[in-house]
Design a protein around this nucleic acid. Structure first.
Lengths: 219, 219
DNA sequence: AATATTTGTTAGATTAGTCTAACTTTTTAT
DNA sequence: ATAAAAAGTTAGACTAATCTAACAAATATT
């Protein structure tokens, strides 16, 4: 098992890989908020135990071993988030930071028990998929709300980023995962949407927000 | 907030202080399984932020600040143990190692919620007292089972050490916190005790075990 | 009281993780 | 195609936490 710091490097590389395939050192260092030389020397060390493949000036790559390790950290993170919301009663906007620490806890028993108590969940409180015990992640392909058209009915399933600000905003609008919305109108000048859902007959959502909400069309 | 390592030094000093008042560097280094020079240089560093009072060749001392910090770590540890047993269904012999990692998690919200869900417990699953939110620990004065006499009826309330081996042993004998036992006989040659409890009419407990069990007399 | 033992200290080295400054390679833009 | 910009690398230094070897002080033993 790598150190906590190394786990964070693997996790960051995992996210970068899932986003755009090529992992750039600069992106990694920005994501982890360290200097590029720091990230550079760390990936060289990670190579020694075959977590990553490193070649000078080439994009970074995770090995299978490194990818699996990263996925299992993400699994611990997302199970924890689910546990904190479903069992302990936290709001979805409160759980990220706690999970960020708990994901480094070394105890299969703990996370297996969470998994069990939660009934083997497949997504976290923000709709992000939970990798399985062998590190396999099956992610569904949702659409950005911003790409939908007037008249469609959609269900909120996930979001591109789960920043506290976005989650608090959605709380204030009473929008949750699973909330179904009718797209009443799209303002052409700023791409903002007027939607209706539950008991809210007409709510305006800015383009910035719509870009970050992932939905599926309701038949 | 000190680092995780420093928190472990404070916690160790706290235990040593509660056991015999004078904190010796050698004892500290043994408890933490580091060399004496390592412990020595660390207490010097801890002094810089006024966690401890250090004077060459003198016994170590915790400052009020250091003692409170240590107590709050112990609080997190014991709340976690309680949470793992009562809410998550772990056995009392399984929780120490997990709590040892969770005690370093930095989240008042998490531990406050545990406290709440548990109904503000005052002892952990092994009968050890839980310091309150301001770091005050009120510990009851139990007797060692080994110091009791024939004919007395006692209730198991705590133990001097909660090693997995002892806990597993007690599990196998079906002895729990709260179990009331009648001391039927004390063998003079080895101080072992014959006790009866629940549906066990006569059980032999070695002196080694009796020394580690803390009880109170039942009137 | 003198000596032996234990306890504590200093010095110097090592590893993990970080930085800045300077430099090189690759990519982008004119 | 060359210059400018971006990305990546190397060198060297720093802090936290650890070690061993050597030494000093305090305590215990005869």
């Amino acid at each position: 098992m790598p150190t906590q710091t190394k786990e964070n490097y693997l996790k960051a590389m995992y996210f970068l890989e899932r986003k755009g395939s090529k992992i750039a050192l600069t992106d990694l260092s920005k994501l982890l908020d360290v200097s590029t030389p720091t990230a550079n020397s760390m990936v060289k060390k990670l190579q020694e135990d075959e977590w990553v493949i490193y070649q000078k000036y080439k994009p970074l790559q995770l090995t299978e071993k490194g990818r699996k390790a990263a996925a299992l950290i993400v699994r611990k993170h997302r199970l924890t988030e689910m546990f904190l919301t479903k069992i302990m009663g936290f709001g979805w906007e409160e759980v990220h930071d706690i999970a960020e620490e708990m994901e480094h806890i070394n105890s299969d028993a703990l996370f297996d028990r969470m998994d069990e108590l939660l009934g083997n969940p497949t997504v976290d409180p923000h709709g992000s998929p939970i990798p399985d015990k062998s590190g396999v992640l099956v992610s569904r392909n949702y659409e950005h709300l911003s790409d939908m058209s007037e008249g469609q009915r959609v269900r909120l399933c996930s979001m591109t980023d789960s920043s506290t600000e976005l989650l608090v905003f959605l709380n204030s609008k009473n929008i949750k995962l699973g909330t179904e919305m009718d797209i009443l109108k799209i303002e052409s000048f700023d791409q903002s949407m007027i939607v209706s859902y539950n008991h809210h007959p007409s709510m305006m959502l800015s383009h910035e927000v719509c870009k970050r909400l992932l939905v599926e069309v309701v038949n």
